[in-house]
Design a protein around this nucleic acid. Structure first.
Ligand SMILES: [Mn+2]
Ligand SMILES: [Mn+2]
Ligand SMILES: [Zn+2]
Ligand SMILES: [Zn+2]
Lengths: 148, 148
DNA sequence: TTATTAATGATAACTATTTGCATTATAGTA
DNA sequence: TACTATAATGCAAATAGTTATCATTAATAA
């Protein structure tokens, strides 16, 4: 498991610092503006590279979509989804299966509104996992590694 | 509330048809490939325009991220988020406030795995709403409309 | 101090999506 | 049916966010 060596550069330190000093959930370009005040020559690609790296190391969290492209569903009945983190495929999770979950969520709405000050309009719940096809592929790889 | 007239064009009909015929959750370009087989001259921008339009009309559902850009959080403690659908701002929802929800979700994991065939790794829960600032703006607009 | 190589800055490339605009075609009306 | 207003289209160019390339710099360990 030879892992590459980790260097704490000036840029990396300031990026982490600025993100930690902010109560907001900054986007790459917002963070870029702030880091530039400390390090005027910093490049936007350094911001992106470090955000990826820091998220991979578990020092920060990447919010929102991992895949960039939108998907569409002709089934407008209430149901949930599970997305494969390997290939991006999306499958259905029937509403009935998690109706207690949505009940529990609805029960918290008033409290969430009170604490956050938002008008809560709804929520978005999505499961993440590895689809059967991707699991088979991984198992095959594993077998080849061991069996060789 | 003068709303513009709705025309059921050939392209729109086929786009909806193809999405309905598919059990998958198609992306714009996947759908484009399928529609092209029926309408070889169709344009990718027609696909995009119609998906937006159909979603707005409630005939289909747009999955995944509404905002395109990623955001980052230096707080790696377990907590949830609420996103303003008007301005994209993200605020925290403390874990304690929805711990029953996450308990309920964990309880369903085995069932979700059984039905979908996925290995469930986790989930993503995000509340949607209107932030205090955007509400104020809306209220002001409303007053101006009425008061005039 | 020196050698190794991770990381950087500048820029080009890329992907998904949106926009501008001249042209076409739908739906309502005569 | 023919006419008309304008919604919608096809094509191309533009945009946004992000990722890749590569010569150069600088952090670490010996
Ligand atoms: Mn679905
Ligand atoms: Mn947060
Ligand atoms: Zn998969
Ligand atoms: Zn807002």
């Amino acid at each position: 498991m030879l892992q590459k060596k980790w260097r704490m550069t000036n840029q990396r330190r300031v990026i982490l610092e600025e993100l930690r000093n902010s109560k907001e959930h900054l986007s790459a370009d917002e963070l870029y503006m702030r880091v530039k005040k400390k390090l005027p020559n910093v490049s936007i690609s350094t911001i992106y590279r470090n955000l990826e790296e820091l998220a991979e190391q578990g020092l920060i969290r990447k919010l929102g979509p991992q895949s960039i492209q939108k998907r569409f569903d002709a089934n407008i009945q209430p149901h949930f989804h599970i997305r494969c983190v390997k290939c991006g495929r999306i499958d259905d999770v029937p509403f009935s299966m998690v109706s207690e979950v949505s009940q529990a969520i609805r029960k918290t709405t008033a409290m969430v509104e009170k604490i956050t000050g938002y008008d809560v309009l709804g929520y978005h719940l999505e499961f993440l996992g590895i689809c059967p096809e991707c699991r088979k592929k991984e198992e095959k790889k594993e077998r080849e590694r061991n069996g060789r």
